[in-house]
């Protein structure tokens, strides 16, 4: 159990980091908003990969579903942002929940392959349904109303930054709470030994469906935020490559500790930002090398590395 001040400090870390980044990059607010949105998505992925222990390469399906849902909602129903977020989250949760019923009976390679297949089916459907989704051209042409009727979206991404940071903060704080509830602990126990939980009367399948659906909802929320702040939704938001990329971010930071998702997203996106000038082929080589090096030499990612250094400096054993 962490002490009370530590917990509060942890909760404040997201806005603090946001403010520091804002001070460092005052003219890059749209970019910072992008980081915050990606961090929400990677947090949702940590729920599945790190806490539930399920390796997936199809998480972008829920992100894309949320993005398209929010875009279509703004275009055809109401361009109010907050209800749009709800629409996106619902879309992500529905896609996740429906596919989880099928997915959670499988395991290992079969599970992994099905996550890829499901996201590719969704990709194909969206790409074929040009009339609704815009196909390869993407979905655009919607404008958002001011948030809470007060704050207008602007060209420089100022509002996008504060809006995304606020949502990230809420998601992070709620997930931190969730992890120490009986439900969160049961999910971790299932990751450690599903059969053992079954022998205690736990329903492994149902818990996995619930946690996957929840995670899909959060991924959909991130997708909706992305749609609203960028005001374009592209097919690449559904791609397996994007699923792999967010997995790299998570692994870079460290799975199973929400901090890892934040650190990994930040480090990865910043490197990507500066490396954007180098060609995509070398970028791919770089990502591949990062993955191999981390798996071989630093399982647990950067946050584990930091914990090890901290333990070494203070002369204590690593957690």
């Amino acid at each position: 159990m962490t002490s009370f001040p530590t917990r509060i400090l942890g909760d404040l870390a997201v806005p603090l980091a946001g403010l520091i980044l804002l001070a460092l990059y005052p003219s890059q607010q749209a970019f910072l908003a992008q980081i915050a949105i990606t961090a929400i998505l990677v947090l949702s992925l940590d729920l599945v990969v790190g806490f539930a222990g399920l390796a997936t390469l199809g998480h972008a399906a829920m992100f894309g579903a949320g993005a398209y849902a929010a875009g279509l909602y703004a275009l055809h129903v109401w361009s109010e942002p907050l209800t749009g977020l709800i629409a996106g989250a619902l879309a992500g949760a529905v896609v996740a929940g429906a596919t989880a019923l099928m997915l959670m009976r499988a395991h290992g390679l079969t599970f992994l392959m099905m996550t890829v297949a499901i996201s590719q089916v969704l990709y194909e459907i969206v790409s074929k349904a040009r009339d609704v989704t815009g196909g390869d051209d993407g979905l655009f042409g919607f404008t958002m109303q001011p948030v809470l009727g007060v704050w207008e979206f602007d060209f420089f991404g100022k509002l996008a930054f504060w809006y995304s940071l606020a949502v990230l903060w809420i998601v992070f704080v709620l997930l931190r709470r969730l992890m120490v509830t009986p439900f969160g602990q049961t999910v971790r126990a299932i990751r450690d030994d599903a059969g053992r939980v079954g022998s205690l009367g736990g329903r492994v399948y149902r818990h996995r469906v619930v946690v996957y659906t929840l995670s899909g909802g959060i991924a959909g929320l991130a997708g909706a935020l992305s749609a609203q702040t960028v005001q374009v939704v592209g097919l690449s938001s559904l791609s397996v490559t994007y699923s792999a990329e967010i997995l790299v971010m998570l692994v870079l930071g460290g799975t199973g500790r929400l901090w890892g998702a934040l650190v990994g997203t930040l480090v990865f996106t910043v490197i990507h930002h500066y490396a954007a000038s180098i060609d995509p082929v070398r970028w791919m080589l770089f990502i591949g090398l990062i993955l191999v090096v981390i798996v071989l030499f630093l399982p647990g990612g950067l946050t584990r590395g930091i914990a090890l250094i901290h333990a070494w400096l203070t002369g204590r054993r690593a957690p």
């Binding site: 990969v49 222990g53 390796a55 997995l247 791919m284 990062i290 191999v292």
Partner: peptide, 18 residues
């Protein structure tokens, strides 16, 4: 399994790039 997935996906990326 997750480590195996990550490592081999890393190899795929390296292979694509090379």
């Amino acid at each position: 399994e997750l480590d195996q997935v990550l490592l081999t996906i890393g190899l795929v990326f390296i292979g694509i790039a090379l």
